[in-house]
Design a protein around this nucleic acid. Structure first.
Lengths: 208, 208
DNA sequence: GTTAGCATGTAAGGAGTTACATGATTTT
DNA sequence: AAAATCATGTAACTCCTTACATGCTAAC
């Protein structure tokens, strides 16, 4: 139950599900797949792998998928290739089924999105809608405070707020397109037992 | 020397320089000025204030700038209004003079930008250019890996990379405009003792 | 034969969050 | 007088980074 839902774990499990890999390559893939969104250092990656092994979610697999570049006669310390266990796959599915705030907050959304290919269609939709309503909420707050503070702030602060606002608006438009696409492609497939297109924007927690 | 350059400290000092304030309001201002870029909780704000007081950079100022809403007869525990000391102002100037990577990395750039009004013109320019070249570097990496990985990745990963790419491109355009504006407005004012317009874009590859 | 990149790790700690705890003031 | 919001704080914890330490392997 330990609720260890760090982003890194999801990212590692997600990548390993696509194909077994060793740590070094894992890290490169993380950088490119997540692009500008997140980056991780070895100092967090290796301890994470260690912990996943201890919990039986992945295993070290010294007999790699390497095509016989050089048969290991001397059994020299090979690269450690990690592979998901059955438990690991289950656990990954649990993480990917998370459709609440934890999946659409800034730090997590990108990673969850990156593995949408392995995520159920209805979960995908709920995450996209959740993120959108989160952003719209933020938009409203900023707009309010901008109009309230008009004239009182210097140019740079205003410029920053303006740029932030436009960035968020842009992401909302992006989400709209994605949601549209998702809706269109799920109408025919009855694979996932969906009833209707529910509120989805309901659970926006208000903290401010 | 202690290199305590947390973003929060800069933000607090910067806001307090604009006008004395108590913690609660400070936090609200942080949320609105920084908008979508950063948000801080009380759990980090109050310890930060405490530390700043201990280091003599700010002082508690119980006689607030409140217009006589109610003269404090009973000396009841008033809001604690914080104000910059002379040392604090010096320190802030030091932080604002930082024009290296620390000022243009993702987590810091927004905050530094927000206080550009209190920053020297040449430092502003160097930060803007530093950030731009940082982003262009990132752009190149992502473009490379995208073209290398073509066909091998699923739609969502690609979509994410694409969106990230466009976001960064957009910020670069924004920076270009800002840099242009800065250059135009600094040519006449001899206020800050500037020698020449130095390399600045050293590490940046210009394609346009 | 030495630099550069691949590969794996650990120890210390920085920066901030969550959850809790408390009380004052204003609004209803 | 209850509820909301203003206001201040602390302890425990999470997640990740930096800096270090080590060795192998490919290229020049």
């Amino acid at each position: 139950m330990s609720k260890r839902g760090s982003v890194l774990e999801l990212a590692v499990l997600g990548l390993l599900h696509q194909s077994p890999m060793h740590g070094y390559e894992l890290r490169k893939r993380l950088s490119t797949t997540l692009g500008a969104f997140r980056a991780f250092s070895y100092g967090s990656l290796y301890p994470c792998l260690k912990s996943l092994v201890e919990r039986g979610l992945i295993v070290e697999d010294t007999a790699a998928a390497d095509e016989g570049t050089a048969p290991p006669l001397t059994a020299k310390r090979a690269k450690i290739v990690y592979r998901l266990t059955a438990d690991g796959k289950d656990y990954l599915q649990n993480l990917l089924a998370e459709a609440g705030p934890a999946a659409w907050e800034d730090e997590n959304f990108g990673v969850h999105f990156a593995f949408f290919g392995q995520t159920d269609a209805d979960v995908r939709l709920r995450i996209l809608e959740g993120r959108r309503s989160r952003l719209e909420e933020r938009l409203e707050n900023v707009r309010l405070s901008v109009s309230r503070a008009r004239e009182r702030v210097d140019t740079y602060t205003l410029e920053l707020q303006q740029h932030g606002l436009e960035s968020v608006e842009r992401e909302v438009r992006w989400l709209n397109e994605l949601i549209q696409t998702e809706r269109n492609s799920t109408t025919s497939t009855t694979g996932t037992n969906r009833r209707d297109a529910p509120s989805a924007a309901t659970a926006a927690k208000n903290k401010e």
